[in-house]
Amino acid sequence: MTGQGDRRNWTYLLKRGFTYGADWQIGASGQLTVDKALPDLPGVYALIVDEDIVYIGVTARTLSKRMADYARGPKAQRTSHRVHHLLKTALGGGRVSRVLYAMPEHTDWNGLPVQTAPGLEQGLIQHIKPIWNLQGA
């Protein structure tokens, strides 16, 4: 049986089909950025600090737009604002932060449409209990 610590290691998601997307960085003027272009598709994403999965999320927009929200950290978006500051603190402390993602296909159940990404997000939060997810705490 896999221990809780093993489930929180980023390789846990990589072995199960997640893709490495980018590293977070602090730019010269102090802004958060990612070092690679991310897909313009919706999906489930994981934020990693060092080797640990610290946040699981889902976006119906695009992954690149969702990460831009975290980069800006607007106060009106409570989660974006909170995660923005957590990322800046981690990076400012010399830690490495990455983005992983998965884009599960929609399916159907008895002829009814099923969006699998929200279910995957919820299941991962319950299973991994990432420390930055308020539901996982």
Rank of each mutant, 00 (worst) to 15 (best):
G43M: 07
N110M: 12
E121L: 09
A46L: 04
Y20S: 09
Q25V: 09
K88L: 10
T59C: 03
R7L: 09
G136P: 08
L91I: 08
L13S: 01
H85R: 15
G73H: 04
E51P: 04
A102C: 08
K15V: 10
E105M: 14
A68Q: 08
V96H: 15
R78H: 13
A90I: 09
D108P: 01
A68P: 01
G111Y: 04
D52G: 05
G17P: 05
P130M: 07
R98A: 13
A90C: 07
A90M: 06
S64G: 01
Q31D: 14
L124F: 00
G27C: 09
A22G: 02
T79Y: 04
E121K: 14
R78P: 05
A28I: 12
A117E: 06
T19Y: 08
R78K: 15
S29A: 13
P118K: 01
G123A: 00
T89P: 01
L63H: 07
G93A: 14
F18T: 01
Y20K: 07
T11Y: 13
K36L: 15
H106R: 15
D40V: 12
P130R: 04
V114E: 02
R16C: 07
V96Y: 14
A60M: 01
A71R: 04
Y12Q: 00
A37Y: 13
T11F: 14
L32S: 03
H84I: 03
L120T: 01
E121D: 09
L112H: 10
L41H: 13
L14Q: 04
L41S: 12
N9M: 10
P130F: 00
L63A: 07
R98C: 08
G43C: 04
V114C: 00
V83F: 04
I26M: 11
Y70P: 00
A22M: 03
V83A: 06
A37F: 15
Q77W: 13
Q77E: 15
M1T: 09
P42T: 04
I56P: 00
R82Q: 09
G5H: 13
